[in-house]
C-alpha cells in the first residue's frame, strides 16, 4: 500500500508543483492521475521514487518511509517501484534483452551487470515476460529498431522485471496511436491485476483513463480537486480539473472509437450519463 501525506514540491525556480497532496493507493488498485499540463502529475510520481526530491511531506510504501531513506536504502526501495515512461525511455543503443535486464540492476552487483552475467532465473523471467507481451522473437534487436508500441512493451517488461509492488506510469500512451494506446493500457492493467500491483497512471487522455482505471484522481495546480470512481467523472468535474470546455465531445469520442466492448459496464453507463 502506498501512502502519500502532505507531499509538497517547490522547484528552485519558485514554481509550486505540488501543494500538500495526500493520497492512499491500496494494493492492487489501478489509479489514473489526470490533470492539465503543468498540474504536477509527473512531479508527483517522481516524488514517490524520489527521482525528484520532495520539499515536504511523506511517502510510505508498506512499512518503509521512502522520504527518510539514505542513498543506499533508497536504491533498495526503488527496486519495489517499477516505472514506465512517456516516450519509453529505453536505452536506445542497448538490445531489447539488455533493456529488460536493466530492470534487475538494483539486484545484481556492478561487475555482474557490466559483463551481463545476470542470474539464470532473471534471464528466464525476461524470456517469459517478453513472450507474454509478444516480443520473444526480438530479444537481440536494438531498442531503436522497434516501433513505438513495441518499445513501450519493452518498457513495461523492464518495470515488471523489478518484481515491484507498485507501478509508476508516466503518460504511457503519449506518443502512440489510438489503437496501440488502448493495447498498451490494457496490457498494463492486465499485468497489474495478475500480480496484484498498485499503479498510478498519469494520463492526458481522459477517455482512456475512464475506460481503464477504477479510480481517478484529478490534479489542478498541484492540488487534488477530484478523487473518485471513474463513473463519477462528469463534465462538471472535468471543468474543475481542466477549466471550462464542452466536455460532451470528449466523452462521446470514447463511445465512437472503442468497438471491442471489453470495458466494464459501470464505466459505459457513467459515460452515457455524463454525455447527457
Amino acid at each position: 500500500m502506498l501512502v502519500i501525506e502532505g507531499l509538497t514540491k517547490r522547484y528552485p525556480t519558485g514554481d509550486l508543483a505540488l501543494d500538500g497532496v495526500s493520497l492512499t493507493v491500496p494494493k492492487g488498485q489501478v489509479m489514473a492521475l489526470i490533470g492539465p499540463s503543468g498540474a504536477g502529475k509527473s512531479t508527483l510520481i517522481r516524488c514517490v521514487n524520489r527521482l525528484v526530491e520532495p520539499t515536504a511531506g511523506a511517502v510510505r510504501l508498506g512499512a518503509t518511509e521512502i522520504t527518510r531513506l539514505g542513498d543506499r536504502a533508497l536504491r533498495r526501495a526503488r527496486r519495489r517501484m517499477g516505472m514506465i515512461f512517456q516516450e519509453y525511455a529505453l536505452v536506445e543503443r542497448l538490445t531489447v534483452m539488455e533493456n529488460v535486464l536493466s530492470g534487475r540492476l538494483g539486484y545484481v552487483g556492478f561487475w555482474r551487470s557490466w559483463f551481463r552475467r545476470f542470474p539464470l532465473a532473471d534471464i528466464e523471467e525476461a524470456f517469459r515476460l517478453l513472450a507474454r507481451v509478444g516480443l520473444d522473437h526480438m530479444v537481440d534487436k536494438r531498442a531503436d529498431a522497434l516501433s513505438g508500441g513495441q518499445r513501450q512493451r519493452v518498457g513495461i517488461v523492464r518495470a515488471l522485471m523489478q518484481d515491484p509492488e507498485l507501478l509508476l506510469v508516466d503518460e504511457p500512451t503519449a506518443s502512440l496511436d489510438p489503437k496501440t494506446s488502448r493495447q498498451i493500457m490494457r496490457l498494463i492493467i492486465e499485468l497489474a491485476k495478475e500480480r496484484n500491483l498498485a499503479a498510478i497512471i498519469n494520463i492526458h487522455d481522459v477517455a482512456l483513463a475512464q475506460l481503464f482505471a477504477e479510480r481517478i484522481v484529478g490534479l489542478h495546480a498541484g492540488r487534488i480537486v477530484f478523487d473518485g470512481p471513474a463513473a463519477a467523472l462528469t463534465p462538471e468535474v472535468l471543468t474543475t480539473i481542466y477549466g471550462e470546455e464542452d466536455w460532451s465531445a470528449t466523452i462521446r469520442k470514447v463511445e465512437d472509437g472503442d468497438g471491442d466492448g471489453d470495458e466494464p459496464p459501470s464505466v459505459e453507463a457513467a459515460r452515457i450519463a455524463a454525455a447527457d
Binding site: 526503488r78 517501484m81 515512461f85 525511455a89 536505452v91 543503443r93 540492476l105 556492478f110 557490466w114 523492464r158
Partner: peptide, 27 residues
C-alpha cells in the same frame, strides 16, 4: 530520460554510468 529510467530501477551510480550513459556516448 534514458538515464532517469536506469536510475528508477534502483541502479547504483556506477551502474548508471555503465547502463544509462556509456551506451549513449560510446560512439
Amino acid at each position: 530520460s534514458q538515464a532517469e529510467a536506469v536510475r528508477a530501477t534502483g541502479a547504483s551510480w556506477f551502474q548508471l554510468l555503465a547502463w544509462g550513459i556509456q551506451p549513449q556516448v560510446l560512439p
